[in-house]
Structure formats: structure tokens, C-alpha cells
């Protein structure tokens, strides 16, 4: 529900990621982190929840 709410509020899809990994699954953890890092790199830097270019409230600054 948290992921769903954040994406609903405007956080880029794919920026919030969850998975189950056991403490004994070191290889799988590394693999997942690698994948997520790749995904987030593709999305680029996080611009936050508001569109700064459009000004504070959607107005053009």
C-alpha cells in the first residue's frame, strides 16, 4: 500500500522497490540491489514531489 500511495502521489514508478531476501541469500541480495541501482540510474536524479520548473504551485516562475 505504501508503494501504491507514493506512486499515486507522484513518486516516479520504479523508484520505490521492495523484496523479501533472507539473511542467508547473499548472492540474491547483491543481484537485486544491482538491478534496482540500474533501474534508478535510468530514472535519473530524484526531482522530488513537485515540479520545480513549474514553480511552487504550478505557477510559472
Amino acid at each position: 500500500m505504501l508503494k501504491s500511495l507514493l506512486e499515486y502521489m507522484g513518486v516516479d514508478e520504479g523508484r520505490v522497490n521492495f523484496s523479501w531476501v533472507s539473511a542467508s541469500e547473499g548472492g540474491r541480495f547483491a543481484e537485486l540491489v544491482g538491478e534496482v541501482t540500474e533501474k534508478v540510474k535510468q530514472l535519473g536524479p530524484n526531482e522530488g514531489l513537485i515540479d520545480k520548473k513549474a514553480g511552487c504551485c504550478g505557477c510559472q516562475e
Binding site: 506512486e7 499515486y8 502521489m9 507522484g10 516516479d12 514508478e13 514531489l49 513537485i50 515540479d51 513549474a54 511552487c56 504551485c57 504550478g58
Partner: peptide, 19 residues
């Protein structure tokens, strides 16, 4: 209806409301 809007549209609406 709100879910169907694009991320940018949702962001714009919410930032306007929460401003």
C-alpha cells in the same frame, strides 16, 4: 479517474492543493 492520470498531472494537482 485520478489514478488514470499521468504522474505529472497527479503531481501538479497535489502540489497545487497542498500549496
Amino acid at each position: 479517474a485520478f489514478e488514470a492520470k499521468s504522474t505529472a498531472e497527479r503531481r501538479a494537482y497535489l502540489s497545487q492543493e497542498l500549496s
